[in-house]
Design a protein around this nucleic acid. Structure first.
Lengths: 137, 137
DNA sequence: AAACAACTGCAATCGTAGTGCATTTATTTC
DNA sequence: GAAATAAATGCACTACGATTGCAGTTGTTT
């Protein structure tokens, strides 16, 4: 359990029982999860508390939010490079239209995009929809 | 006005007064628009009818939906290549965090992305957030 | 003109995001 | 260690976009 505490402190997030539970849940996931996913999986938790816990995590660079086009925001743990100063990981996200799961593809980096003159980039997100390797079989 | 009618018929969309009004509005926009935008701009229109009109347009490859991360779906006219069989245009979308407008960048094509083994791509979307050329000044 | 299909508009529902506030828990200060 | 203060939590409630059901309307076909 010390590992979880270390991860929170490392990002300057105060330790609470709730946050440890949420982080514990997140590290066990292989997919991005929604608030509803968390709410259903974690007993006796309040949705708003989850909402704010995850928001805190996001602000401190511990998780990132993923918009997979379903209209429901999902969350996943960040790579270590993300800090309170910003999310520095530029990986692709994949949404499987069959199993409806959303994965991070850390090995697929978002390529450079040429913007029209005068435009300034601050964030980039790339979402691929299709069939994941499991559903493709 | 014949031009608008032609565009609908070309995509096998039945002509109605409502649809002509919606299409007329869309061709005049330089940004992607939300249902609420349309609702406020077009007098005496019902949100649901707009919803269904745009949905029909989308299904017939006349408009595409854009998820700009704001949680509100936006719509914009497609390039001619889009048909009832799918949307074939792979341009980048840009969301300006200052003016909060969303543009299509037809000249910025989405680069090829290498997926992990076994994954099958069906759609790709790329969103850049930052400052548009107007707001950068 | 009757029959049918397509379209429209109102009412209502659903689900997620988000806020306000009172209570609890943790931390600091004396 | 107790009071004061700050942070975190949980409940109630609001806001809003997306979507469906259904009845009424319009348009088409025969």
């Amino acid at each position: 359990m010390k590992e979880l505490e270390r991860r929170l402190l490392e990002k300057q997030i105060n330790l609470t029982a709730m946050r440890l539970v949420v982080l514990d849940y997140l590290v066990k996931q292989t997919n991005a999860v929604s608030l509803t996913d968390m709410e259903l999986s974690l007993e006796k938790t309040d949705r708003v508390t989850l909402y704010r816990s995850v928001k805190t995590f996001e602000e401190h660079g511990l998780v990132h939010r993923i918009d997979d086009g379903t209209g429901v925001t999902k969350f996943a743990l960040c790579q270590p490079a993300c800090t309170i100063d910003g999310h520095h990981d530029l990986h692709v996200h994949f949404y499987c239209i069959n199993c409806q799961e959303t994965h991070c593809l850390p090995k697929a980096q978002i390529p450079e995009v040429k913007l029209p003159c005068g435009y300034e980039r601050q964030e980039t997100s790339l979402l691929v929809k299709g069939l994941c390797s499991e559903c493709k079989k």
